[in-house]
Computed example of a mutant assay.
Amino acid sequence: MADTLIKICGLQDVEVLKSMKILPLDFIGLVFAPSRRRVSAEAASALIAELADWQTGKIPGAAGVFVNPGIQELEELLTVAPLDVVQLHGQESPQFCREVKQAFPQVQVWKALSVAGRTPDAAADIHTLLEGYAGTIDALLLDTYDPQESGGSGRTFDWEQIPLYQQAAAKYALPLFIAGGLRPDNVKELLDGYAPYGVDVSSGVESSGSKDIAKMTAFVERVKQS
């Protein structure tokens, strides 16, 4: 089985990022949506520049997190901060995702979906939803539904729904990342039970609202050992 990809999201501080260069990461996440973790285009550019001399041999990709952006907003930001991934966390339609892919062929487009309660027709609904996005995105990310926030809630969702999404994602060849409340002490349970393509962590590797190198290291080690 291929190694699970790891993304650590919500980076803001260059010195913290420098301390992470020993970690075998696949992506870092930079938040441009309203959030306490939000960074400016200029700050993102400085963070992305630090990725060039990553010490594990593989340079992580830079994923930018957006909520309902406009094409012009993305164009202006990408001019300053050369992202590898545009990660959409709002109500972006398949048509908008297609427009982003066409406008910026140099980046991947990921769509985040919020997972709420299970419905009687969940399997059919999920297949219909993903069929709409097939061909318009490069990956799918599941996060915990929160009426106040578009991610970063620090809470898990009902993992028993993951197989429904995995089945539909596999049908449309969409890699599936899992986010929402992951921590060093629960990520192994997720991996053992569901073997996702990738995991995405933010608040679960923080202490007092800041990224904690000990927690990040522990998280990565748990993933790599599974």
Results as ranks from 00 to 15, higher is better:
Lys111Ser: 01
Glu50Trp: 01
Ala124Thr: 14
Asp143Glu: 06
Cys97Ala: 05
Leu47Val: 10
Gln106Lys: 04
Gln108Ala: 13
Gln72Ser: 08
Ile48Val: 14
Thr79Phe: 10
Arg155Pro: 04
Asp158Trp: 08
Thr119Ile: 07
Leu77Glu: 03
Ala46Phe: 03
Ala81Val: 05
Ala81Pro: 04
Leu83Arg: 08
His89Cys: 04
His89Ser: 03
Thr79Trp: 10
Val86Trp: 04
Tyr145Ile: 06
Val85Asp: 03
Gln161Asp: 02
Asp143Ser: 11
Ala139Thr: 07
Val100Glu: 13
Glu149His: 09
Val86Thr: 02
Glu92Thr: 11
Gln161Ala: 03
Gly117Met: 10
Pro94Met: 05
Asp138Pro: 02
Tyr165Thr: 00
Ala124Pro: 04
Thr136Ser: 15
Val109Glu: 08
Val109Asp: 06
Asp138Gln: 13
Val107Ile: 06
Thr136Asn: 13
Leu78Met: 15
Gly152Lys: 09
Lys58Asp: 04
Leu164Ile: 07
Gln166Met: 08
Gly61Ala: 13
Leu47Asp: 07
Asp146Glu: 08
Pro105Lys: 10
Glu160Ile: 11
Leu78Gly: 02
Glu76His: 12
Pro105Ile: 07
Pro94Asp: 08
Gln95His: 11
Gln95Leu: 09
Gly154Asn: 09
Gly154Trp: 12
Val65Trp: 04
Ile126Ala: 02
Glu75Trp: 05
Ala134Asp: 05
Glu73Thr: 15
Pro94Glu: 01
Ala122Lys: 00
Gln108Val: 00
Val115Glu: 01
Ala139Asn: 12
Phe66Asp: 11
Asp158Phe: 09
Val109Leu: 01
Pro69Glu: 05
Gln106Ser: 10
Ile59His: 03
Phe66Ile: 10
Pro147Val: 06
Cys97Gly: 01
Val115Asp: 02
Tyr133Leu: 11
Gly135Phe: 12
Pro69Gln: 03
Thr79Pro: 00
Thr144Glu: 00
Trp54Lys: 01
Leu141Asn: 00
Ser150Ala: 15
Leu142His: 10
Gly57Met: 11
Ala81Trp: 03
Asp138Ile: 07
Ala49Lys: 15
Pro163Asn: 10
Phe157Trp: 14
Thr136Trp: 08
Phe157Cys: 11
Pro120Thr: 08
Leu141Gly: 04
Ala63Cys: 11
Thr119Ser: 14
Glu99Thr: 14
Ala122Cys: 13
Pro120Asp: 09
Ser93Cys: 07
Ser150Lys: 12
Tyr145Asn: 06
Leu51Asp: 09
Leu113Lys: 04
Gln106Pro: 03
Leu88Tyr: 02
Gln108Glu: 14
Asp143Asn: 13
Ala122Gly: 00
Tyr133His: 07
Asp158Asn: 15
Gly117Tyr: 11
Leu142Met: 02
Thr119Gly: 01
Ala81Cys: 10
Leu47His: 13
Trp110Arg: 04
Leu130Phe: 05
Leu164Cys: 11
Gly57Leu: 13
Glu73Ile: 06
Gln148Met: 14
Phe66Pro: 04
Ile126His: 06
Pro69His: 05
